[in-house]
Amino acid sequence: MKPVKLAEGTAVALAQVLFIGFFVFPIIWIFMMSLKNFRDIISYPPKFLFSPTLQNYSETILGAEGALRAGELPEYVRFLINSMIISGGAVCLAALLGVPAAYALARSGIPGRKHIAFTFLSFRFAPELMVILPMYLIYTQIGLYDTYLGMVLSHQLICLPLVIWIMMSFFQDIPIEIEEAARVDGASILLTLRAVILPMSGPGIASALIIAFIFSWNNLIFGLVLAGPNTRPVTMGILQAMTFDQIKWGLMAAAAMVSALPGMIAAIYLQRHITRGLTMGAVK
């Protein structure tokens, strides 16, 4: 190998190590923390060799002994269930509204449809804090505060723009001639959508929904302000480890690891779908 090539290769490898380190190190750190007992966590300098314990996980998932004995569901499991309901519901609703909306935006000649599409996307630009206080006031007034419906609705601010934007690019990629063929063949718009377009859109819908689910799952702020004791999602569960007299670092780390799980699994197994979905909205 020529020396220039070698130097180049080393530089690239070094950059990769730095890059991966930057992203992976916090995860490894949290993961280690979740396996330590309290003394090991607070010891300084930090310990890299310690005897691991599953205590934090069992306390997170199974709950404190008191709660178990009282026959209640452990708090963190309730948070998990809440998150499933909220994010699952939000994604279903976004699919129901967003897929037809994306089709209409992609195909119909509504004047100003580009602006409409962009308006939907711009919901993702504004910090959620901007709308969250007015929403809190409205929610408490009309009884949506701390309800699943209220949470699902608020998460449309996350899911709907993603679904619309990704699906719109996807529909635009389907050759118009196929739809014209269907029209000449005598199909109604509904039959065209059901029998021709949707079967072709399976991969696009899958990536849109996966991405929407992950963004919804990872959201903290709506849960922080709009959810009460009945509907708190997992992201709030992580904060529960901060009690007013101490921070239970081990519990927090374990909770964070568990709640990051869906995103990580999705990232590994559905990578193809996700990158496709993200670039569909971005590159074209």
Binding site: I178, E180, A195
Partner: peptide, 27 residues
Amino acid sequence: DVAMVFQNYSLYPQMTVAQNIGFPLRA
């Protein structure tokens, strides 16, 4: 009630040949 044949065929990719041919009847 006219039938059209497109330059790029414009078949329905998710349907079998039989379903493609039968689509105008189904409609």
